[in-house]
Simulated assay, not measured.
Amino acid sequence: MEIDENSVLRLKGRIKAAKDVSFTLNRPAVLSGDSSIAKLIMKHYHERFNHGNHNTVMNEIRQKYYITSLRSKLRKIAHECQWCRINRSLPKMPSAEGDLPPERLRHHQPPPSRVRGSIISGL
């Protein structure tokens, strides 16, 4: 770890040898998961990626910042998020017949053939 010219603690790693990589990806800023700025960053990314899964949000955050205990802090933010709480409480509707229990499936018979009787005589 090193401190840059703006007094920001930055992580050093082997990625510094990579060419055409931005400085923030090369040297992510190190933040404590308990700091208020880290919580604001995590909340911003959580909302920016539509309250999505944790892995997507963590990947995007880690491209610029190294936040200690990121996974657990992100879970806490999602747990406290009002939109996520409401969405979790809504009943989930089955998306296809495969999701329904067998007793709720109605077995349809195919329609009668149109080749019989009066239909043909009417042609």
Rank of each mutant, 00 (worst) to 15 (best):
E47S: 13
I86T: 12
K12W: 10
T68G: 06
P91V: 12
R75D: 05
T24N: 13
K43W: 10
I120L: 01
N59G: 15
P102W: 03
R62H: 05
L70F: 06
K92Y: 11
Y45N: 11
V57T: 14
S35Y: 08
I67D: 05
P112Q: 01
P28Y: 08
D34T: 11
E47P: 09
R104P: 04
I37L: 05
R75H: 04
H44M: 14
R48N: 10
P102A: 02
L74V: 01
Q63Y: 09
G52L: 06
S121E: 12
P94V: 01
I119F: 11
L31T: 04
Q63N: 07
H107V: 11
R116H: 13
Q63G: 07
R71L: 08
V30H: 06
S7F: 07
K92R: 15
K12I: 14
P112S: 07
R116E: 15
I3K: 07
L11S: 09
D20G: 01
C84P: 15
K76Q: 15
N55G: 12
A18I: 07
P102H: 00
V57K: 05
A78C: 07
A96F: 03
L11D: 04
S36K: 06
R85Y: 12
W83N: 08
G98D: 01
V21Q: 08
E60S: 12
P110N: 13
M93E: 10
A18N: 06
R48P: 09
N55S: 14
I37M: 09
I67L: 10
H44L: 14
L105D: 05
I41H: 02
G117T: 04
Q63R: 10
T68M: 02
N26Y: 07
V57S: 09
G13A: 02
G33I: 12
D99T: 02
W83H: 11
D34P: 00
L70N: 00
V57H: 00
K64F: 15
E103Q: 07
E47I: 14
S35K: 08
G117R: 04
L40K: 11
S22D: 06
S36H: 07
Q82K: 05
L31R: 06
I3D: 09
Y66V: 08
I86D: 12
E97A: 03
T68S: 13
L70E: 04
I37A: 10
M1T: 06
V115K: 12
D34C: 03
A29C: 06
L105N: 05
L31F: 10
R104G: 00
D4K: 00
I120E: 04
S121F: 09
V115F: 14
E5W: 13
V30E: 02
E5G: 15
E2D: 03
M58P: 08
H51L: 01
M1Y: 03
S35P: 10
P112L: 04
K39N: 08
M42Q: 03
N26R: 10
L31W: 06
N87K: 06
K76N: 14
K73Q: 15
D4M: 00
S22N: 02
I41N: 05
K92W: 09
K16D: 15
K76W: 11
S7A: 00
E47M: 14
S35V: 10
A78G: 02
V8E: 12
I15C: 12
